[in-house]
Design a protein around this nucleic acid. Structure first.
Lengths: 166, 166
DNA sequence: GCGGGTTACTTTAGGCTTAATCTATTCAGG
DNA sequence: CCTGAATAGATTAAGCCTAAAGTAACCCGC
């Protein structure tokens, strides 16, 4: 019995197990998950190879880069959609390495104002440049129209998911 | 000063920090990531509340459910897109709890044939029914057309990403 | 002021995940 | 048969992440 062996044997993933009987929503979710996983894994690998860092560290620095005045721990937690304890751990690391700093928050002595240091800003800017090229490269196969439509529809997914959860 | 407090104050996430200058691809990626995160977090929480289990355990059982003859550890690793060591750990757990079993693979003494036990099948079937309802509920706000279009476009994303990575 | 409830952050225990390394087995040549 | 390369799986160390509990500071009403 000869193997079918099509040109591009699709490597199995979670979607592979989806069956006709499955609800459309389930299939959509599995595909969404697979897409994210595919891109995320590549980004993690490259961050590690190129900059010896991790996605959570990159993400946290990314938020601080966009808010030069700094963010509170709680705000970082919301932006990154992770728990506060997690933010504590990553900020601890980056602070030890001199990439971020905890400044006093005069208005509230419970809180910190976390900011990138000069070294943090310089380092992040370098990583961000490459990162953007990686992402653009991964999605370069989409037409401009597909980009726009995917962006719009994911906006819908985001909105209806948020509304469904309340 | 009254708070603006719009009807639905958008809670900040990674996307919030995206700026006009950012490449379309980057914005698309951030939105994709956010959507996945939103759904994934809810599913994890419900699996924990309702069945005292985790997404990785559910995913692994899900694959075995679709392949009644069982899968090798390596195949599970490919399907779930995780490393082999990870599969070892989760199968160990589920085996201790009597939900899966490692059967000998006559054709290759290095390998196992991992299968759901009767209890595993029963347990998974119950979880899967609810799981599908959760997902359908989260995405219920999409029209049939939006569903189909999102599914198609994510198929494109998956394909171009895979091709870009080779 | 002061008491109680809330909030910001930290700490802890435990599960997930990876990369790297190890063991046992298979396979392909000679 | 051997021998060496490749493969399946297990193990280990380290990082991420969560939920839950703990500490300190804020805030509101009296």
């Amino acid at each position: 019995m000869e193997q079918p062996a099509p040109r591009a044997a699709p490597s199995p993933d979670r979607e592979t197990a989806a069956r006709d009987g499955d609800h459309h929503a389930l299939r959509l979710w599995l595909r969404l998950f697979t897409c994210t996983q595919l891109i995320e894994r590549r980004v993690r690998a490259r961050l590690r190879e190129r900059f010896d860092t991790t996605l959570p560290r990159f993400d946290l620095m990314s938020q601080l880069f966009r808010y030069p005045a700094g963010l509170r721990m709680k705000e970082l937690s919301r932006h990154l959609m992770v728990t506060g304890g997690n933010v504590t751990g990553i900020v601890d690391q980056l602070e030890r390495e001199g990439l971020v700093e905890r400044a006093d928050e005069p208005a509230d002595r419970r809180a910190w104002r976390v900011r990138l240091t000069r070294a943090g800003r310089r380092g992040f800017a370098e990583m961000a440049r490459e990162h953007e090229v990686w992402i653009a490269g991964l999605l370069a196969g989409l037409t401009r129209r597909e980009h726009a439509e995917a962006y719009r529809l994911l906006g819908r997914v985001k909105r209806v998911t948020l509304e469904a959860g309340s």
